[in-house]
Amino acid sequence: MLTNVAFTDPQGQTFTDAVVKARSVRRNRNWHGSENDSIYLESNDLFGEYQANSNRYEDDNLTISVDYYYWPTQTAYDEQRKPYMLSRNNTDDVFVSFEITENQLADEKYAGLSLEEIADLYFTDTVLPTLV
């Protein structure tokens, strides 16, 4: 959770002491691949030795998806008022999660952090600068 955050939300409302908290943080790893081995005889040498062939293909992709809530003030948070959901400025779909890509996660600043810590650091380093 981040406190005393100053930003302007996508609706143009400015806050000086907002509270920002990740509503959900999802780590998604997708992979697929194939592996095969075969032996065959050359068509021009049916009585010869078998030829061997092996193929392997793998694709691995990791992302972390984050949805952020924010309260306009610390008091609103402390009084457990309903929060607002932060939307991305660069999309028309307000319900799209923020995506932290595998390339971004490779940065050593994320090494050893919990999912919540990754979400908070991503917000301060990447999301916050994009808010007007």
Score class of each variant (00 low, 15 high):
residue 1 M to R: 12
residue 2 L to A: 11
residue 5 V to N: 15
residue 6 A to P: 07
residue 7 F to W: 13
residue 7 F to K: 13
residue 7 F to Y: 07
residue 8 T to I: 15
residue 10 P to G: 08
residue 12 G to Q: 15
residue 13 Q to V: 14
residue 14 T to P: 15
residue 19 V to H: 05
residue 19 V to Q: 11
residue 19 V to Y: 14
residue 19 V to T: 12
residue 20 V to F: 06
residue 20 V to K: 04
residue 22 A to K: 11
residue 23 R to F: 13
residue 24 S to R: 10
residue 24 S to I: 14
residue 25 V to R: 12
residue 25 V to A: 14
residue 26 R to K: 09
residue 27 R to T: 05
residue 28 N to P: 14
residue 30 N to S: 07
residue 31 W to F: 02
residue 31 W to L: 07
residue 31 W to H: 10
residue 31 W to Q: 13
residue 32 H to I: 09
residue 33 G to A: 11
residue 34 S to D: 10
residue 35 E to F: 07
residue 35 E to K: 12
residue 36 N to Y: 12
residue 37 D to W: 04
residue 37 D to Q: 00
residue 39 I to G: 09
residue 39 I to C: 14
residue 40 Y to K: 02
residue 40 Y to T: 04
residue 41 L to C: 09
residue 44 N to E: 04
residue 45 D to E: 08
residue 45 D to P: 07
residue 46 L to N: 02
residue 48 G to D: 02
residue 48 G to A: 05
residue 48 G to H: 05
residue 48 G to L: 07
residue 49 E to K: 08
residue 49 E to C: 13
residue 49 E to A: 04
residue 50 Y to N: 10
residue 54 S to E: 09
residue 54 S to G: 03
residue 54 S to T: 02
residue 57 Y to H: 13
residue 59 D to W: 06
residue 60 D to M: 12
residue 60 D to S: 08
residue 63 T to R: 11
residue 63 T to F: 11
residue 65 S to Q: 05
residue 68 Y to A: 06
residue 69 Y to F: 06
residue 69 Y to D: 03
residue 71 W to G: 00
residue 71 W to Y: 01
residue 71 W to A: 01
residue 72 P to I: 08
residue 72 P to S: 00
residue 74 Q to I: 07
residue 76 A to G: 02
residue 77 Y to W: 00
residue 77 Y to G: 01
residue 79 E to Y: 05
residue 79 E to W: 08
residue 79 E to G: 05
residue 79 E to K: 11
residue 79 E to S: 10
residue 81 R to Y: 03
residue 81 R to D: 08
residue 83 P to T: 01
residue 83 P to W: 03
residue 83 P to R: 00
residue 84 Y to E: 01
residue 85 M to P: 00
residue 85 M to F: 00
residue 86 L to Y: 00
residue 87 S to L: 01
residue 91 T to P: 04
residue 91 T to K: 10
residue 98 F to N: 10
residue 100 I to F: 05
residue 100 I to V: 05
residue 100 I to M: 02
residue 100 I to H: 09
residue 102 E to W: 09
residue 103 N to K: 05
residue 104 Q to A: 15
residue 105 L to I: 05
residue 105 L to F: 08
residue 105 L to D: 08
residue 106 A to M: 07
residue 106 A to K: 11
residue 107 D to C: 10
residue 107 D to E: 12
residue 108 E to A: 13
residue 112 G to Q: 04
residue 113 L to H: 04
residue 113 L to E: 09
residue 114 S to C: 01
residue 116 E to L: 08
residue 116 E to D: 06
residue 117 E to P: 02
residue 118 I to P: 15
residue 119 A to C: 14
residue 119 A to M: 03
residue 120 D to C: 06
residue 120 D to P: 09
residue 121 L to S: 02
residue 123 F to S: 06
residue 123 F to H: 03
residue 124 T to G: 07
residue 127 V to Y: 07
residue 130 T to G: 10
residue 132 V to A: 14
